[in-house]
C-alpha cells in the first residue's frame, strides 16, 4: 500500500492498481467520519459520515449552497486554503487519517487529485507543459521519463489522438472540452489514488460532456472517483453510488446536511428520504 507517510519518508510511490490495499481487493477508499467544515465561526455542513468505496463513481448531488463543493474540498484538504476556513472530524484514505497531525496537506493532494469546473489550463504554456507540470514539481527532470508520463496521461484522458501532433502548441488552442480533458490528464500525471471532480461538465456542451462521462467510466476501473454535479441525469448515467445533500427548509440556519446515501439506482427509484424525493422529482432545488 502506498501511504502518505511512506511518500513523506522519501519512498518512491509506484502506481500499482492491482496491489491489494488493506481491506479491499484493489483500489483505494475514502472514509469520512463526523466531518464538519467551518468558514470562520459559521458551520457549513452538519457532521458528515460517508463511505466512498474503491473503484466506483460516487456522485454528490443537491441544490446550490448545500455544501457539496465544500465537502468535496475537505476530502483532499483544499478547504483549509480558504482564509479562516477549518475542518473538524476526519477523513481516512484507506487506513490513514489525512487530517492526522504531521500529515502534509500537499502530499495528501498528490494522492487525492482534484478537477474543477474551470479547467484552469495555463493558456500560454504548451499542451505538453500543462501535463508535465505536476511531475516536474515532484522532481522528475529526465526527458524520456517525462515524455512517457505525458503520453500515458494523455492516453488515459482520451486526448492523445487529438493532440499528439501539436504537443508544443499553446494550450489555449484547445476547445473547452479538450481543456477539461487536459486538466484531467494533468491530474492523472501525478498518479493519484482518488480523483475528485467539482462539476467538471458545468461549462461544457452535451457532446463534450458525454466525452468526459465516457472518460470517467473508463477511469473507474483504476481510480476511486467522486463527482459533484448539478446534473441529475449525469449522476444516473455514470455513478454507482449517490450522496444527496440538502438544506433543511425548516431550520433557519442554512446549514447543509447529508440526507441520503445509497446505490444510485436505489436513490433515484426508491428514495428513502422525502427531501430526496422532492429534489429528484424537481419539486425543490
Amino acid at each position: 500500500m502506498v501511504s502518505v507517510v511512506s511518500v513523506m519518508n522519501g519512498e518512491q510511490p509506484a502506481k500499482q492498481p492491482a496491489a491489494a490495499p488493506v481491506g479491499h481487493a484493489r483500489g483505494h477508499s475514502l472514509t469520512v467520519r463526523n466531518l464538519v467544515p467551518f468558514y470562520g465561526k459559521r458551520q457549513a455542513v452538519r457532521p458528515v459520515n460517508l463511505d466512498i468505496p474503491p473503484c466506483q463513481i460516487t456522485a454528490i448531488i443537491g441544490p446550490s449552497g448545500c455544501g457539496k463543493s465544500t465537502m468535496l474540498r475537505c476530502l483532499n484538504r483544499m478547504h483549509e486554503m480558504v482564509a479562516q476556513a477549518r475542518v473538524e472530524g476526519t477523513v481516512w484514505l484507506d487506513h490513514e487519517d489525512i487530517y492526522a497531525a504531521g500529515v502534509d496537506p500537499r502530499l495528501v493532494r498528490r494522492k487525492i487529485g482534484m478537477v474543477f469546473q474551470h479547467p484552469a489550463v495555463l493558456h500560454t504554456r504548451s499542451i505538453y507543459e500543462n501535463v508535465a507540470i505536476g511531475p516536474r514539481m515532484s522532481g522528475i527532470t529526465r526527458r524520456r521519463e517525462l515524455d512517457d508520463l505525458v503520453e500515458h496521461s494523455l492516453h488515459q484522458a482520451a486526448l492523445w489522438h487529438e493532440v499528439q501532433d501539436r504537443l508544443k502548441h499553446p494550450a489555449r488552442m484547445l476547445s473547452g472540452g479538450q481543456q477539461q480533458r487536459l486538466s484531467i490528464a494533468r491530474t492523472l500525471a501525478i498518479a493519484p489514488d482518488v480523483i475528485l471532480f467539482d462539476e467538471p461538465c458545468a461549462a461544457l456542451d452535451p457532446i463534450a460532456t458525454s466525452k468526459i462521462e465516457e472518460l470517467l467510466v473508463a477511469l473507474r476501473s483504476d481510480y476511486t472517483l467522486v463527482i459533484v454535479t448539478h446534473n441529475l441525469q449525469q449522476a444516473v448515467r455514470i455513478s454507482d453510488r449517490t450522496a444527496v445533500f440538502m438544506i433543511d427548509r425548516d431550520a433557519k440556519d442554512y446549514i447543509g446536511s447529508l440526507v441520503e446515501v445509497n446505490d444510485t439506482a436505489e436513490v433515484f427509484s426508491n428514495p428513502q428520504d422525502p427531501r430526496t424525493q422532492d429534489y429528484i422529482s424537481g419539486r425543490v432545488g
Binding site: M78, M81, R110, M114, L122, M137
Partner: peptide, 13 residues
Amino acid sequence: PMTIRDAATALGS
C-alpha cells in the same frame, strides 16, 4: 483568477 491557484494547489504544489 483563483482557479489557477486552486489547480496548482490540487496538484500538491
